[in-house]
Design a protein around this nucleic acid. Structure first.
Length: 348
DNA sequence: AATGCGGGGAC
DNA sequence: GTCCCAGCATT
């Protein structure tokens, strides 16, 4: 039996029931695909429900404030996805009258939509015969055909796209694309796949050559940098505190945080006391400084380890633009800060 | 071509 | 601890 026939048969018998598979509405397909970039289905699912409920069409999304979009995205990570999502919604609603671009080539021009996502929308919504190449496809094809090309190198993506295109039955690209990704997600998994029950265990070259555990080949190892964040949690006599938006480039762009003192290493009480007296909070009369040692955490991003300490700073004056803990909760925060806020509120 | 960008799950 | 997840933008 052909590769695609075996694959599609497997898919029809084993596919998960996922909400974005019940529609061909390009808005919902687009929404789901952006959310699932570098993100597991189980993690993205609740966000898909909250977004489709809050923003049933591209117009509601376009008309929302960015802050509201980021708030709903809170916790999902890679926040540029949410910012691009919002900008693209405005473009489609305002410039395209709500009609999504009708081809792969046109979809590719949208902010936040790359080759994978354009192919996914074009095939799932329009049944256009364009192959998807994601982490699953790399894994499935590299194993089945014993391809040792380094999947971290850009030219390799073209190689796999070409191969996937040749394997694709051109009359049903949508189901083929769904099937190959689902197969990678459920059967041909990264670690210790159960090849004894695989429908391809008679033809998979990696299995035959005992190379399942070395394929796909991926070179790049990213380097981790350590950073040291001291968050200064002001508290005035009204119980109000101060937050600010991160407007600089880098992590958590446009999310909120407490006033930040970034240092080159772990710092002690005296260092923080001296710095806030002479520096960033010198306009306040500080009546107490206390390290929230119970909240100290190493927050691990994919590329940075953030050593985070929270310091409670009690001040005599009313904090300008101060907010109470209940008001805080409507702002979008990095999840590590949101967790701190929730724990503080609970312990009151 | 290389790097930055989150958070979490599986092992 | 490691690896990777329905990748993309920027340089």
């Amino acid at each position: 039996m052909d590769f695609h026939n075996t694959l599609i048969k497997w898919y029809l018998q084993n596919k998960r029931d996922l909400p974005w598979r019940k529609t061909t509405d390009p808005y919902q397909i687009w929404l789901s695909e952006i959310m699932l970039q570098q993100t597991r289905v189980a993690q993205g699912m609740p966000y898909f429900f909250s977004f489709t409920k809050e923003f049933p069409t591209v117009f509601e999304l376009a008309n929302a404030d960015e802050e509201k979009v980021l708030k709903l995205w809170q916790g999902l990570g890679y926040y540029s996805r949410a910012r691009n999502l919002h900008k693209t919604a405005q473009f489609i609603a305002n410039d395209l009258k709500g009609v999504f671009p009708p081809t792969y080539k046109e979809l590719l021009k949208l902010k936040g939509v790359g080759e994978y996502t354009a192919a996914a929308i074009a095939s799932f919504s329009y049944n256009e015969a364009v192959p998807v190449v994601d982490g699953n496809v790399f894994r499935v094809l590299s194993r089945y055909f014993d391809i040792e090309s380094d999947i971290a190198l850009p030219p390799t993506k073209k190689e796999f796209a070409q191969l996937a295109y040749e394997l694709m039955p051109k009359e049903e690209p949508a189901i083929f694309n769904q099937a190959i990704m689902e197969f990678g997600a459920l059967q041909c998994v990264p670690k210790s796949p159960d090849c004894s029950v695989c429908v391809f265990n008679g033809s998979c070259l990696a299995l035959k050559k005992k190379k399942v555990d070395v394929l796909p080949v991926k070179s790049k190892k990213l380097k981790i940098t350590n950073r040291f964040f001291n968050y200064l949690v002001l508290e005035d006599v009204l119980g109000n505190t101060l937050i600010q938006k991160r407007t600089s480039k880098g992590i958590w762009h446009n999310l909120y945080e407490f006033p930040l003192l970034e240092t080159n290493g772990i710092v002690d009480f005296n260092f923080v006391a001296k710095t806030i007296r002479e520096g960033i909070l010198s306009s306040y009369t500080i009546t107490a400084l206390e390290e929230c040692s119970h909240a100290t955490v190493i927050h691990k991003l994919s590329h940075q380890h953030l050593h985070i300490q929270f310091w409670k700073v009690k001040v005599d004056e009313n904090v300008v633009n101060g907010l109470n803990y209940n008001e805080l909760k409507s702002f979008p925060f990095p999840i590590v800060i949101y967790n701190f806020i929730e724990n503080e509120e609970k312990s009151r």
